[in-house]
Amino acid sequence: MLINRKEVQQIAVLAKLNVSKDEIDTIVTSLDSVVEMINHINEVDTDNVKPMANPMDAVQRLRADVVTETSNKEVLLSMATNADDDYFLVPTVVE
Protein backbone atom coordinates (compact mmCIF):
# COMPACT_ATOMS: atom_id res chain seq x y z
CA MET A 1 0.00 0.00 0.00
CA LEU A 2 1.27 3.43 -0.95
CA ILE A 3 -1.20 5.24 1.27
CA ASN A 4 -2.72 4.01 4.50
CA ARG A 5 -5.80 4.66 6.62
CA LYS A 6 -4.05 7.02 8.97
CA GLU A 7 -2.76 9.17 6.12
CA VAL A 8 -6.19 9.26 4.52
CA GLN A 9 -7.68 10.41 7.81
CA GLN A 10 -5.05 13.14 8.13
CA ILE A 11 -5.72 14.35 4.60
CA ALA A 12 -9.45 14.41 5.33
CA VAL A 13 -8.83 16.61 8.37
CA LEU A 14 -6.82 19.07 6.26
CA ALA A 15 -9.42 19.06 3.48
CA LYS A 16 -12.32 19.41 5.94
CA LEU A 17 -13.99 16.24 4.72
CA ASN A 18 -15.40 13.42 6.74
CA VAL A 19 -14.42 9.87 5.95
CA SER A 20 -16.76 7.46 7.66
CA LYS A 21 -15.77 4.05 8.96
CA ASP A 22 -17.90 2.42 6.29
CA GLU A 23 -16.10 4.09 3.41
CA ILE A 24 -12.53 4.30 4.65
CA ASP A 25 -11.34 1.05 3.11
CA THR A 26 -12.88 1.79 -0.27
CA ILE A 27 -11.33 5.26 -0.24
CA VAL A 28 -7.93 3.96 0.78
CA THR A 29 -8.05 1.44 -2.06
CA SER A 30 -9.08 4.01 -4.66
CA LEU A 31 -6.54 6.61 -3.52
CA ASP A 32 -3.89 3.93 -3.47
CA SER A 33 -4.58 3.09 -7.11
CA VAL A 34 -4.40 6.78 -8.04
CA VAL A 35 -1.09 7.20 -6.21
CA GLU A 36 0.24 4.15 -7.98
CA MET A 37 -0.65 5.74 -11.31
CA ILE A 38 0.83 9.06 -10.29
CA ASN A 39 4.09 7.45 -9.25
CA HIS A 40 4.99 6.91 -12.90
CA ILE A 41 6.23 10.48 -12.96
CA ASN A 42 9.30 9.21 -11.17
CA GLU A 43 10.32 7.22 -14.24
CA VAL A 44 12.03 10.18 -15.82
CA ASP A 45 14.94 12.23 -14.58
CA THR A 46 14.02 15.90 -14.22
CA ASP A 47 16.97 17.26 -12.26
CA ASN A 48 17.72 20.13 -14.58
CA VAL A 49 14.19 20.93 -15.62
CA LYS A 50 12.52 24.13 -14.51
CA PRO A 51 9.02 23.54 -13.13
CA MET A 52 6.24 24.88 -15.34
CA ALA A 53 3.58 26.54 -13.22
CA ASN A 54 1.54 27.89 -16.06
CA PRO A 55 1.51 27.25 -19.81
CA MET A 56 1.57 30.97 -20.53
CA ASP A 57 4.91 32.40 -21.42
CA ALA A 58 3.93 35.74 -19.94
CA VAL A 59 4.47 37.86 -16.87
CA GLN A 60 2.06 39.29 -14.35
CA ARG A 61 0.12 42.32 -15.51
CA LEU A 62 -0.07 45.22 -13.10
CA ARG A 63 -3.23 47.05 -12.13
CA ALA A 64 -3.33 50.77 -11.33
CA ASP A 65 -4.16 51.56 -7.72
CA VAL A 66 -7.67 52.89 -8.21
CA VAL A 67 -10.93 52.09 -6.49
CA THR A 68 -13.35 50.62 -9.01
CA GLU A 69 -15.62 48.60 -6.74
CA THR A 70 -18.69 49.71 -4.83
CA SER A 71 -20.40 48.01 -1.94
CA ASN A 72 -22.00 44.60 -2.61
CA LYS A 73 -23.04 44.21 1.00
CA GLU A 74 -26.75 43.48 0.52
CA VAL A 75 -26.19 40.99 -2.30
CA LEU A 76 -23.39 39.20 -0.48
CA LEU A 77 -25.17 38.93 2.85
CA SER A 78 -28.37 37.78 1.15
CA MET A 79 -26.47 34.84 -0.37
CA ALA A 80 -25.25 33.55 2.98
CA THR A 81 -27.16 30.92 4.93
CA ASN A 82 -26.53 32.79 8.15
CA ALA A 83 -26.05 36.54 8.33
CA ASP A 84 -27.50 39.55 10.12
CA ASP A 85 -27.82 43.04 8.64
CA ASP A 86 -24.09 43.64 8.78
CA TYR A 87 -22.17 40.42 9.17
CA PHE A 88 -21.75 36.86 8.03
CA LEU A 89 -22.35 34.62 11.03
CA VAL A 90 -20.53 31.43 11.93
CA PRO A 91 -20.55 29.26 15.04
CA THR A 92 -18.38 30.96 17.67
CA VAL A 93 -14.72 30.93 16.82
CA VAL A 94 -12.43 30.35 19.77
CA GLU A 95 -9.08 32.12 19.50
Binding site: F88, L89, P91, E95
Partner: peptide
Protein backbone atom coordinates in the same frame (compact mmCIF):
# COMPACT_ATOMS: atom_id res chain seq x y z
CA UNK B 1 -12.04 40.36 11.12
CA UNK B 2 -14.00 38.08 13.41
CA UNK B 3 -16.08 39.81 16.03
CA UNK B 4 -16.74 37.62 19.03
CA UNK B 5 -18.62 39.87 21.43
CA UNK B 6 -21.72 40.60 19.36
CA UNK B 7 -23.43 37.26 19.88
CA UNK B 8 -22.94 34.44 22.32
CA UNK B 9 -23.37 31.61 19.83
CA UNK B 10 -21.88 33.23 16.77
CA UNK B 11 -18.82 35.02 15.60
CA UNK B 12 -19.61 37.85 13.22
CA UNK B 13 -17.42 38.17 10.15
CA UNK B 14 -16.47 41.50 8.60
CA UNK B 15 -14.49 41.13 5.38
Amino acid sequence: KSIHDKYTQYSAIDL
